[in-house]
Every structure is written in C-alpha cells, then in structure tokens.
C-alpha cells in the first residue's frame, strides 16, 4: 500500500492529535462502546428490556431495571452523560432470572441504552428516553 505525501501527513497529524488529547476528551462514543461490547456483531432490536421512568425529577437517582431472557451480560449506557458507560451486568450460573435493578445518574434528558449479549451469541439492544428535570452531575 502506497501513501502519497499528503496522505502520510494527514495520518501522522491525526495520530498526533489523538495522542495529545487529554484522557477525559477521549470518552468513547456510544457507538464505539457498543461495537467494543459486541465485537462488531449485528445487534437485534428485541430481546432485552429496559425499564426506566419517562420523567425523572432528580437525575441523581434514576431507578432502572434491565432484563433479558438468557442474557450472559447486559451493558447499560447513558448517551447524554459526560461519560456514557453506566454499568455492565455479567450473570453467573446461579443467576435465577437475568434481571437487575439499580439507580443511576443522568446529566439531563437523554436516551438510556441497554445492550444484551444473549447465550446464543447474538446481541440485542433497546433504548428509552428519560426526561430529567434536574441533572445529576453536580453542575
């Protein structure tokens, strides 16, 4: 593969830019995080459920529930947070139902996304829009 001088400069410049970014500015995007979780596999639109309130008055504690039949792992992302990852639940052999409930922080009105890795090796995702009255990032 041959690069012209212009291409070489562009690649070098891009690499330098990436290397010089402070760590916080590299926060991976939602798509990248999902690709990392799934390994680039196709993601179906059904097979995982996410329960979250339509309107959350306080973004500091938003109760959510995720469940998926036969899920090995479920990743939860908040697309509008400064750092999108929220949690990844990995279910062991003694998990009775592949269900978990927790409380999360949301910086503002945004989509909460759940991606599940199912036991047959496929992936499923769902998302839910949550309206947040007071953001939960201490701003």
């Amino acid at each position: 593969m041959d690069f012209t001088r212009r291409e070489t400069m562009a690649i070098g410049g891009a690499a330098l830019l990436v290397a010089s970014l402070p760590r916080g500015a590299q926060a991976a995007t939602v798509d990248e995080l999902i690709a990392e979780f799934t390994g680039g596999a196709d993601v179906a639109d059904s097979g995982v459920e996410l329960t979250a309130p339509e309107i959350a008055e306080n973004g500091n504690t938003v109760p959510i529930e995720v469940s998926a039949e036969s899920a090995e792992a479920i990743m939860v992302l908040a697309a509008g947070n400064p750092t999108p990852p929220v949690a990844t639940f990995t279910f062991g052999p003694l998990a009775a139902s592949h269900y978990a409930s927790t409380r999360i922080r949301l910086a503002g009105t945004q989509d909460v996304i759940a991606v599940a890795k199912l036991s047959d090796g496929t992936f499923a995702r769902t998302s839910k829009n949550v309206k947040v009255t007071i953001g939960g990032c201490g701003g």
Binding site: T90, P93, L94, A100, I104
Partner: peptide, 13 residues
Amino acid sequence: ESVVDVKMEPAIS
C-alpha cells in the same frame, strides 16, 4: 459460584 458480577462506572448513584 458466581451469581452476578457488575462493572460499575461513575454514573451509578
């Protein structure tokens, strides 16, 4: 034997 293993990020309350 494992029941659940959760990786937590700053977005947990």
